[in-house]
Design a protein around this nucleic acid. Structure first.
Length: 591
RNA sequence: GGCCCCGUAGCUCAGCUGGAUAGAGCAACUGACUUCUAAUCAGUAGGUCGUACGUUCGAAUCGUACCGGGGUCACCA
């Protein structure tokens, strides 16, 4: 019987082990003359925690017990006997309610290290996407001002998710929906014109509805440089259109700069205005009309708290309740103009036309009430079921000295991204933003980040990376190590201590972490993994501090030394791969 | 009132696609710097996994109800 591990493929021990278990089960199925297919989806290979003996464990026996009408212990015993035949498996023990604890043949660890050293950046780079097309829409902030801290989390999440999907073989389009067609643009235009008049001596106060903050002042200067005072005598409508267009261009430039400084580049900026002008809304609505999903009707008044200005009125509605929404949704205002929903409806229709296999919307949690109607649109407009996911990003609670920091929209005292980046690198911000699951609120303490940045876990991870770099360069000086060295011929003692094996098991988990993070679209799993891996490394490193035999560089034992250095290098490779998926630059030194 | 998210150690959170003795960080306490980088490590202490019922061999994880916190329920965007 040929070893599964001996193929030329990149090593993915957990997945391979799972295949061995499944093969063994299929063999049992034959032996027991069972013909029906078993549901093997929930069979998992796990890394047991605590003091349980075993490199890996599987719940297989407990899952299949029913199908065989046997107890988990009995079927587990049979499964164990088959598993024991595999050359890769050293021992299998049946424990607890029916877990099979597996210890692999120790030669696997040398193979794992050779494999990681050989394929480096490719280790963990699974082809899960197989060139399927994905659209990830994120940020999509209104082009009425620069990005502030509230936008950062969604921006970084969307970018990291996109990187992850690209890493795993998807073809990703990172897209920004530019709301350049709505009423807020009129306000923007009027505010800019006000600033423009100020330049020419007009001392009127900023109107209440105008955008606060002085970021439009330089834009007004640019406007003046281009047009002089000719705007004042221009026709109102012509002037307003011109000012608005100018403002949008400038605002998008600000936003693009902010994104760039966070390491984010979009593939596509989708203009709402251009879409409206090309008549796409009408077309999308005509499709819905054909499906009988548009009607004139009256909505019931909202229940619960009384809405003072509520008036019953007949409107053009989209029958989103047919797809699970709570109420049908209006698409036109009483003045005949579109609601916000109408262009967004057409926009998702446009995404569908572009034939993506997966469409992801990254939205702020304050849009949670909006999710169902968008899902309804996607269902209504697509001819075949499409994989559509909305990822809601919870708010960032901004703290200063552990106290909530109020940001007032009126005074315009938002913390802007470029302010933040003056004091702290985008890498640090990235790691913090990715250190929580997307649907949990995140505390972001400005002081903690600014003054005591070493409390940030990204330094912990980077410190491990840098330490390894340092060890390796020291080892190079002693001639024990060189990047050009043929690692496949590395000497190994063939045996590893328990601390090293814990790390090797952790390293073997990396492809699986990538698999899970991709499947659930949860980049934070990578942050946690990297922290844990770094922790194991620091611990191992410290063992060498106390005991010379545990050092990485042991001049009098070149074989052992090389083995340790290969382990260190492998850890470094995985940390580097992980940080790069998160869009963070791995450091070679900390000072 | 409807819908969505959350409730796990003093604090901030992992774990949630059902599995074994529920894990980290911070804070507290004890200890380790003639070094391969102490931005680190070792150890101690800390728990009715919001409550109750249910599903089953087995529940922090799934279901129902309730309690508590947040968000959202416009012709806003």
């Amino acid at each position: 019987m040929k070893s599964v591990f001996k193929g030329e493929h990149d090593l993915d021990i957990i997945d391979d082990l799972r295949k061995i278990v499944i093969d063994s089960i299929n063999q049992l199925v034959k032996e027991h003359k069972k013909s029906e297919l078993l549901n093997l989806e929930s069979i998992v290979i796990e890394i047991p925690k605590g003091s349980i003996r075993g490199d890996y464990s599987t719940n297989a026996a407990m899952i299949i017990a029913k199908d065989f009408s046997l107890s988990p212990k009995d079927i587990g015993e049979e499964l164990k006997n088959i598993l024991m035949r595999s050359k890769l498996i050293d021992t299998v023990s049946l424990e607890g309610p029916g877990f099979l604890n597996i210890i692999l043949n120790e030669s696997i660890w040398t193979q794992l290290l050779s494999n990681i050293l050989l394929i480096t950046t490719r280790y963990g780079k699974l082809d899960l996407g197989q060139k399927r097309k994905v659209n990830v829409e994120f940020v999509s902030a209104n082009p009425t001002g620069p990005l502030h801290i509230g936008h950062v989390r969604g921006a970084i999440f969307g970018d990291a998710l996109s990187r992850l999907l690209e890493y795993t073989g998807f073809i990703v389009t990172k897209e920004y929906y530019v709301n350049d067609g709505g009423a807020q643009i009129d306000v923007l235009g009027r505010t800019l014109y006000h600033r423009y008049l100020e330049l020419q001596g007009d001392t009127a106060d900023l109107p209440d509805e105008a955008y606060p903050g002085d970021y439009l002042v330089p834009v007004a200067t640019a406007l003046y440089e281009k047009y002089g005072d000719s705007l004042i005598t221009m026709g109102v409508e012509e002037r307003h259109a011109l000012v608005c267009d100018f403002a949008i261009l400038e605002m998008m430039q600000l936003i693009k700069n902010d994104l760039k400084s966070l390491g984010i580049s979009m593939d596509n900026y989708f203009s709402e205005k251009m879409m409206i002008d090309s008549g796409q809304i009408d077309r999308a609505i005509r499709i819905l009309e054909k499906k009988n999903l548009i009607y004139q009707g009256v909505l019931e008044a909202p229940k619960g708290k009384l809405q003072e200005d509520w008036k019953s009125r007949e409107q053009i509605l989209f029958k989103s309740t047919q797809f699970g929404d709570d109420m049908d949704r209006p698409i036109k205002k009483s003045d005949g103009s579109w609601t916000y929903f109408a262009p967004d409806l057409a926009y998702h229709g446009d995404k569908l036309k572009r034939k993506y296999d997966l469409i992801v919307d990254v939205l702020g949690a304050d849009h949670s009430g909006y999710v169902k109607r968008i899902e309804a649109v996607v269902k209504a407009l697509s001819s075949s079921p499409v994989d559509f996911k909305v990822k809601l990003i919870q708010l960032v609670r901004l703290l200063k000295n552990k106290k909530p920091l109020k940001m007032s929209k009126r005074s315009g005292d938002y913390i802007m991204i470029d302010d933040l980046l003056k004091d702290v690198s985008s890498d640090v911000i990235r790691f913090v933003m990715l250190s929580r699951k997307n649907d949990v609120p995140l505390d972001f303490d400005v002081d903690l980040i600014l003054d005591k940045s070493k409390d940030n876990p990204v330094f912990y991870v980077n410190y491990a990376h840098a330490r390894i770099h340092s060890i390796l360069s020291k080892a190079s000086q002693s001639g024990l190590w060189s990047e050009a060295m043929n690692k496949l011929e590395m000497g190994t003692t063939g045996s590893f201590n328990s601390q090293e094996i814990m790390i090797l098991i952790k390293l073997s988990e990396w492809p699986n972490i990538i698999r899970q993070a991709t499947r659930y679209q949860e980049p934070h799993r990578i942050s946690y993994y990297l922290y844990e891996l770094s922790s194991l490394f620091h611990s191992l490193y410290q063992s060498g501090e106390k005991d010379d035999p545990y050092k990485f560089i042991i001049l009098e034992n070149k074989v052992l030394s090389l083995q340790r250095l290969c382990l260190a290098k492998s850890i470094q490779i995985v940390i580097k791969n992980g940080l790069q998926v998160l869009g963070i630059v791995p450091l070679k030194e900390m000072y």
